[in-house]
Every structure is written in structure tokens, then in C-alpha cells.
């Protein structure tokens, strides 16, 4: 039986590239997201590209009531269950400052929503004893930067959760991969100028699939971000707090 992937935040640009690669190898896809019209169009395309199944399911990271149906759809599809989390949102830090209520949404989209979903899926994964969880965090979660530290905090929380989940699920034979992309050329970053080492979504998707195959624990993509973030993490707080990077 083939693999079935739940893709949370399936309308994300990176998820789109990732889903196509899965489709071309014949995997089944549960496309979870908010925009059903976009998901429907995606499902047709992915089926034509070879997906054994492509099923849109309504999912809102801020509405835990929507979670069970996603998992049910995947279980009905059969095959080995895998989960890939791409959901996330990054409003301008200044917008968050102007409207503190935005904090809850940012944390829900990148951290508490996916965490709660994965907690729901955990027994299924554990019982299955195989499969992979891919969680997309960000290099922004490695250090609280002036420009986006609420987003960064949400990604940091998610990364810590994934680390624990890996510890737990690894014992059962399920692999957990944490992905930390640098800037990627997607809807999220259009309009931002001067981002360094920009990656293409297709290249990120390739990196993720390679890391899944190899059983990598934490993937920085592009690779250059691994040494960069090692340096940035090593900067003492008394210096870092004066820096603008």
C-alpha cells in the first residue's frame, strides 16, 4: 500500500511544490487548508500528475474543531500515514505591535494549531510504527530578531515541540523531521526586498524529500543557513540585543 500524506496548509507555495513531487511518485494526498476553491484546483492538478488520491479537506489552524475530519479522511484513505505541516503566517511586526490580538493568530498558525493537530494524530502514528512527520519551522525560530520575533517565538515553540515529538515517536519507529528554511521565494516573501540566500520552493521541496529519505532530524535549507545560524546562535545576548539583523 502506498503512502498517504496529510498536508497542513496545502495552499502554501512550498507545500504546493512538495505535493507535486509526492504526486509524481504516486502517493495519496489529503490537502488540508482554508481556501477550498484553491484546494479543489490543486486536487485536479495533482491527480493528473499521478497522485493515487488528492482530497481537499477544510482545515483552519485556529479552529481545532476542524482537525478530526482531516485525520479521518487520511485514515479512510489507508496506506502509511505521514503528516507534513506547512501552515504558518507572518504579519509585519509593526502590525502586531499595533494590534496585539494578532499575537494569538500567529502563535496558533505556526505553533499551537499544528501542535494540537499532531497530538491528535499521535496515537495513530505510534500504533502504525512507521511513517514520517515533517514540521516546517524557520530560521527565524533560532533567535528572536527585531523584525519578526513573535513569528520567531511561534516557530521556536514548534521546533521544541517537534524535538520532543521526535524523541517520543522515534521510539515507535516514526521519524520526525524539523525543517528550517531561510527566505524562500513564495507569497510570504513577495514584496520584501533584499532577502539573502533566497531559495526556490521546488529546491526546498527536493531538500525536504531527500531529508525524509535519509532520516535527517533537522534540515536547514538552503544548507548555508546551518553555519550562519550556528554563528548567530553563538552571539552572546548582550551583543545580540544591540544588533539589527
Amino acid at each position: 500500500m502506498s503512502d498517504t500524506w496529510i498536508v497542513l496548509g496545502a495552499t502554501s507555495t512550498i507545500a504546493g511544490a512538495f505535493a507535486r513531487k509526492l504526486a509524481e511518485r504516486g502517493d495519496g494526498l489529503i490537502l488540508a487548508g482554508r481556501r477550498m476553491d484553491a484546494l479543489d484546483a490543486m486536487a485536479t492538478d495533482l491527480t493528473e500528475r499521478g497522485a493515487s488520491r488528492a482530497e481537499p479537506v477544510s482545515f483552519d489552524a485556529r479552529d481545532p474543531g476542524s482537525f478530526a475530519a482531516v485525520l479521518d479522511a487520511a485514515q479512510a484513505a489507508g496506506g502509511t500515514l505521514n503528516v507534513a505541516v506547512f501552515v504558518g503566517s507572518m504579519p509585519e511586526q509593526s502590525a502586531i505591535d499595533a494590534d496585539p490580538a494578532l499575537v494569538d493568530g500567529v502563535i496558533a498558525d505556526s505553533f499551537t494549531g499544528p501542535t494540537r493537530f499532531l497530538t491528535l494524530a499521535l496515537p495513530v502514528l505510534e500504533a502504525q510504527g512507521k511513517g514520517t512527520v515533517v514540521g516546517v519551522g524557520s530560521v527565524a525560530g533560532d533567535r528572536g530578531r527585531l523584525g519578526n520575533y513573535v513569528y520567531g517565538a511561534a516557530k521556536a515553540g514548534f521546533a521544541t515541540y517537534l524535538s520532543g515529538l521526535r524523541n517520543r515517536l522515534g521510539r515507535a519507529g516514526v521519524h520526525v523531521l524539523t525543517v528550517k528554511p531561510g527566505p524562500v521565494d513564495t507569497a510570504m516573501t513577495r514584496g520584501m526586498e533584499g532577502l539573502p540566500f533566497m531559495a526556490q520552493p521546488e529546491a526546498v521541496a527536493d531538500d525536504i524529500l531527500r531529508a525524509v529519505a535519509k532520516g535527517t532530524n533537522v534540515l536547514y535549507t538552503k544548507r548555508i543557513w546551518l553555519p550562519i545560524m550556528m554563528v548567530i546562535r553563538a552571539i552572546p545576548e548582550r551583543v545580540f540585543k544591540k544588533m539589527e539583523i
Binding site: 481556501r35 484553491a38 484546483a41 507569497a187 514584496g191
Partner: peptide, 29 residues
């Protein structure tokens, strides 16, 4: 919201170039 990015856009021959603001929509809407 549409994001625009400054890009140097060239023809395939690379003899002609232009400085443009480029949007890359992902949905028909």
C-alpha cells in the same frame, strides 16, 4: 494582497534588460 519584487528582467539573449516590479500570482482569483 499582491507582492511586487524589483527584478532585472532580461530576454533569453541577455542583450536586452529592464528593471521591473514583478508580481507572481499563484491563484486565478
Amino acid at each position: 494582497m499582491t507582492g511586487w519584487r524589483s527584478e532585472t528582467v532580461t530576454g533569453w539573449g541577455r542583450a536586452k534588460r529592464s528593471e521591473c516590479q514583478v508580481a507572481r500570482p499563484e491563484t486565478q482569483s
